[in-house]
Design a protein around this nucleic acid. Structure first.
Lengths: 190, 190
DNA sequence: CAATTCCGTTCACCTGGGTTAATAAATCAG
DNA sequence: CTGATTTATTAACCCAGGTGAACGGAATTG
């Protein structure tokens, strides 16, 4: 819970009363490997904060699962497109390891916005940060070849590389597993 | 000006007083072909609404201009990442034809938010819509080959295809000009 | 422990885009 | 209108990734 408070404090100041409210509104949620935080076809009803664990975001293209993002400890997870207007999600967030989350419901988040003075500001900053993140990924896809994207992935997630199957990484990088194998081989012998 | 009001009414209802305020806050701005709405290294100080004309968004990768988006009549243009926190922009928006805009400054937009009851809601909906747009483009880059992306571009911008150089389109599609030529050739003979 | 499933790598072959350069076509400026 | 510049196409060659399949090793399961 302290990690959550510190992360929020990274964006806005919190009084003790604010912190107490946050402790009330966020609930512990455990998901085991393979379970979904949001599933395609359902509505994203919560925002989560990862205390421990790992998730992947993916979308479905003609039956193919395209993993385009990961989430790790200390990060918020949510399909905001579905959450913000409580519409049906067209993508999924799946847990890759047993994961421990703190979650807040849509309604409780409105309470947070009402009662915490800088709450709206926090909400705006979070949405902005995920938007900037999406833009960065777009820029990377446009400008970097797969090999560079793989190296950047290793920098971004140095630890989790051995905790998950390679084919999730290959999807993130934008290639098929055999091609990632070749990239890894090229990098190893240089 | 009516086009702007109707576009806003597409998101929220407006009273006559709201409309009058909007008419005051938005100013006419003319840009001629080649000029910039925002330039890399400068701050985006306005949001624009295109009355007539065409723009491209691009980012700079080692001297290469990567065009990743277009804007046309009836659309808002802005580098929100730069505008929202008034920071230096890392990308540019350039006018591809003589273009007539209605623009609102950062400060005047705050006035709009304060005085129009549903103003904040409008702001949120706009930011959401550009976020969803970015996500769609990300999904398209991940899931569609260049040929499909080119066909989708033609559907999205049926008119402007002959008004701009092909190399902006090839960049948007994610390939080099010779490759777009080959794609066009393949499509023509099928 | 054995059997099965899953996963990463490798191979051979194919396809499509990158690159460079030449040419043709279109646009622009004087 | 003409010469100069810009832009689009084409050609030849190269290279990286896709595909389908086979293999071996790891992990799972009964």
């Amino acid at each position: 819970m302290e990690a959550l408070l510190n992360t929020i404090r990274h964006f806005i100041p919190l009084t003790e009363a604010d912190a107490a409210l946050i402790r009330q509104l966020f609930k512990i949620k455990q998901l085991s490997k393979g379970q979904y935080f949001v599933q395609e076809g359902y509505t994203c009803k919560q925002v989560g904060f990862i205390q421990q664990g790992l998730v992947r975001y993916f979308l479905n293209k003609d039956g193919q699962e395209l993993t385009y993002e990961f989430g790790k400890e200390g990060e918020f997870i949510c399909n905001y497109a579905s959450f913000l207007d409580q519409s049906v999600s067209d993508e999924s967030i799946q847990v890759l390891e047993d994961t421990s989350l703190l979650v807040i419901s849509f309604d409780d988040l409105q309470t947070f916005y009402k009662q915490v003075p800088a709450g709206d500001r926090f909400g705006r900053l979070i949405v902005e940060s995920i938007f900037v993140r999406a833009k960065k990924q777009l820029a990377s896809l446009y400008s970097e070849p797969p090999e560079v994207r793989y190296r950047q992935f290793l920098q971004l997630y140095p630890d989790i590389q051995q905790r998950i199957p390679q084919y999730y990484i290959s999807s993130y990088v934008g290639v098929k597993p055999p091609s990632l194998s070749r990239i890894r081989k090229r990098l190893a012998q240089s």
